[in-house]
Write a protein that binds this DNA or RNA. Structure first.
Length: 178
DNA sequence: GTACAGATTGAG
DNA sequence: TCAATCTGTACT
């Protein structure tokens, strides 16, 4: 099977397009010469600064969210609830706070939630700002799997009711039907 | 300096 | 249904 690392041009496309195209791609995490891999089956788009659910709403830059402004293809990782890491991949051009949250991998309960994805892949703050097109320990691969539009389910995003009904009802969460 | 909510999860 | 657990942000 052909394996191809995704390059910068994949990530710099519009965020919603990248979020959908990430479905079916494989994330590869190399630990001590062993590869942990999983197919991405659920993503969620965050498009700041107009997106109230985004940490960059209003164009804010803090030490927590600054990675969100990096050019597409970088990791934006942060801690929520004091215990769970959220793995995001930045999209669009540099200076634009847009990213895609990786919510689940096809790993049967091992990674069926954003916190679990990071636990399984052993990700932590040392990956903050990691470049997925250059890194030797984590990257994304295209393995030639073709995803049909009919396999993609668009739903409302999760856990952001505080952003108000307009943003909370945006169907920016994408799930790959198996 | 202090208060408090949050892109979650797992146990009860 | 709720506790675990801690960072960023908005107060004083």
């Amino acid at each position: 099977m052909e394996k191809k690392r995704l390059t910068r041009s994949f990530y710099t496309k519009p965020t919603l397009k990248v979020a959908k195209e990430l479905l079916g791609k494989y994330i590869v995490r190399k630990i001590n010469n062993k590869n942990l891999e999983g197919k991405i089956i659920e993503t969620e788009a965050y498009i700041g600064p107009q997106d109230k659910a985004s940490h960059a709403y209003g164009g804010k830059i803090t030490s927590r969210n600054r990675a969100e402004y990096l050019v597409g293809g970088h990791i934006y990782i942060y801690l929520v609830y004091g215990m769970y890491w959220q793995l995001n991949i930045t999209t669009a051009e540099g200076g634009k706070p847009e990213c895609v949250l990786i919510r689940a991998l096809d790993l049967d309960k091992l990674a069926n939630g954003p916190g679990k994805v990071c636990r399984y892949l052993k990700l932590n703050k040392s990956f903050y700002g990691e470049d997925l097109t250059e890194s030797k320990r984590i990257w994304l691969e295209d393995r030639g799997e073709k995803i049909k539009p009919s396999q993609i389910i668009a739903t409302k995003r999760i856990g952001i009711d505080y952003a108000g009904p307009y943003w909370a009802n945006k169907k920016w969460r994408f799930v790959l039907k198996s």
